[in-house]
Design a protein around this nucleic acid. Structure first.
Lengths: 216, 216
DNA sequence: GCGAACAAGATTGTCAACGATTTCGTTCAC
DNA sequence: GTGAACGAAATCGTTGACAATCTTGTTCGC
């Protein structure tokens, strides 16, 4: 059971525990609403309870775990309503990023986006939903990056981390990639055309569609 | 110098320290970039270093303090560029909230907004910038609240907390309230008219104007 | 048999002391 | 006089133990 990774020198124990825990939660190794007992985690990661504690406080700030005073921590479960609310926020923030990216991105970066677009088309045509899901992530990440809007990037990464479980469920839905790919291509085209308004509209339209899909 | 408040029973030491520290930072009692030494704060608040430490980790998650490994914590300074980026995010998020508030708010709540609007007009006419600033805060808070968008509310409160220093500086600028009040009234009118698109546009226009003012 | 008081176990919150790292002032060689 | 090496002070990171709190299972009275 011991999941011990090397406590390599120079790496602070707390950051070690933080990385391990975050990875475990994001990787889906923790069941939803699972209790996170400080002592168990400390032994599992080979660090002291204080380090685990600090990591848990950090993760609570990121919204990945829920801490109740004197009653411990657990993996936070995101209801469908919350997922919708989160995606609404993503909608406007990614719209902002797309608009800024349309203005700020270099020509090389626009080429990168185009390449991801063709790869996405291929993945859908080949019927590889997992590949598509990865490209999806990559595309959104690159658009965020190219916008140069650091604050929005941080907010979006925080929000995205809370959606791991829902995203999984969504990308495996039959027919979903086929619809989604066109919306993504529209975003890419608008950004490559350096049209901020169109980029914002395309990003919003895409995430509005995601919201519809989330609601089933 | 001892700022000791009662360590009232039932109140956890960490939360006590957290509240004290947050208030001190938001209240402007800490100079920008001031070093926050754990031992000093522990003695000042009458709690142990571990509690102060936990509080500092929390505040770092909120973006109010900056923590550098092995080198301590300090009050985070928000540059003008960062303030602009934060306000850009506020722009789209408050637009979302205004649009949702236009749909979701009850008639009673719309009346509350109208009352704040008239009070703002009076404060400007009477030349009371501090009263106006308070009403400003109150108006934005109420619109957020009425939107029912809990995720956006939390993000906006976090972002707003980082702007205390800049907000201060801005509201005392001569002529600024006069321009700002009209934008606020436009927002209120759009929401009262239950027009989501107009509400979004008005909120964005207002914060775009704030961005211009921030850049001087 | 049922519910409330009680006690034992588990878990988190707090504490004081120790060890590691960084910073800053001093000294020494050139 | 300048710069690097050294060392002391300050501060953060970590540790193990103790206290407070909550949960759970049991017992007692009715």
């Amino acid at each position: 059971m011991a999941n011990q990774a090397k406590p390599s020198t120079g790496e602070q124990a707390k950051q070690h525990a933080l990385a391990q825990l975050r990875q475990a939660i994001l990787g889906g190794e923790m069941s939803p609403a699972q209790r996170l007992v400080e002592n168990e985690l400390a032994e599992q990661f080979g660090v002291t309870r204080a380090s685990v504690r600090a990591a848990l406080i950090d993760l609570a700030g990121e919204g990945l775990v829920e801490r109740i005073p004197n009653r411990g921590s657990r993996v936070r479960v995101v209801t469908v309503e919350e997922a919708v609310a989160i995606t609404e926020c993503r909608m406007v923030l990614e719209g902002l990023c797309a608009a800024k990216a349309a203005v700020e991105a270099t020509d090389d970066q626009l080429t990168e986006l185009a390449e991801i677009g063709t790869a996405m088309g291929k993945a859908v045509a080949d019927g590889e939903p997992m590949t598509y899901s990865g490209l999806n992530q990559e595309l959104h990440a690159k658009i965020r990056q190219f916008s140069g809007q650091q604050v929005a990037v941080e907010l979006l990464e925080r929000l995205n981390a809370q959606l791991v479980r829902h995203r999984f469920q969504l990308s495996l839905r039959p027919g979903r990639p086929q619809q989604s790919v066109n919306e993504h291509l529209a975003m890419i085209e608008a950004i490559r055309a350096r049209d901020p308004q169109a980029a914002d509209a395309a990003a919003r339209a895409h995430l509005a569609s995601v919201i519809d899909a989330l609601r089933e």
